[in-house]
């Protein structure tokens, strides 16, 4: 079975202008699902899992599954609250990011993750670097809780008429998250 060929986006004369257009096109995407693999490395340990992330407007659902298919973690929520299922326990919280950190030791900025996964600048003034086709090569920013993050985009793919990330690495405080997306599903409303 052939590996999907890596298709590079064409170089453009004016990356900044292409960047503005690309970022604009991403604003239309509010309902989507990604499936892929994730490696989460903290100071203590490193885990790999299958990832399924769904976004529907402000509602999100993250499912981490082991390779034999058992559920490792499930997080479902919206802007205000979230339900976390991990290690057979179920938690309700209005601060999902603090809850995730307490239960798993992972810092997971749930509110900004959708933009990062999309390859979208999550803060207008965030420091960023473009690739030759005008897409984000990296963005660095400080989240509201004062934590510093850098997201490097290593590969893009085409899905539903959009250029979307395939490989990225999220560098955060005591955490590195490597994400490889094998499938994008976009729902146009």
């Amino acid at each position: 079975c052939p590996q999907t060929p890596v298709v590079e986006a064409p170089e453009v004369a004016d990356p900044a202008q292409a960047f503005a257009q690309h970022q604009q096109s991403l604003t239309t995407l509010s309902h989507w699902q990604v499936r892929g693999k994730v490696a989460i490395k903290t100071a203590e340990e490193s885990n790999t899992a299958n990832l399924n992330w769904q976004l529907a407007g402000a509602d999100y659902k993250l499912m981490l599954t082991s390779f034999i298919g058992t559920s490792l973690m499930e997080l479902e929520g919206d802007k205000y609250q979230a339900v976390l299922k991990v290690d057979g326990e179920t938690y309700h919280s209005r601060a999902p990011e603090r809850l995730i950190y307490q239960t798993t030791g992972w810092r997971l900025p749930v509110s900004t993750l959708p933009d990062w996964i999309l390859g979208r600048l999550s803060q207008p003034n965030a420091k960023h670097v473009l690739d030759s086709s005008g897409k984000l090569a990296s963005q660095s920013l400080q989240t509201d809780d004062g934590l510093l993050w850098q997201i490097d985009y290593r590969e893009y793919q085409q899905a539903g008429g959009h250029w979307l990330p395939r490989k990225m690495t999220i560098h955060g405080p005591e955490i590195t998250i490597k994400l490889v997306i094998s499938k994008w599903e976009l729902q146009d409303q």
Partner: peptide
């Protein structure tokens, strides 16, 4: 092999979990 490569292998002593995309082996 699909949607992406992943390997779990054992020779009876060691179990390797290899993830080429994540460039990691446990």
């Amino acid at each position: 092999v699909l949607p992406d490569e992943h390997l779990v292998q054992s020779d009876g002593n060691t179990v390797w979990v290899f993830n080429p995309l994540l460039e990691q082996v446990s």
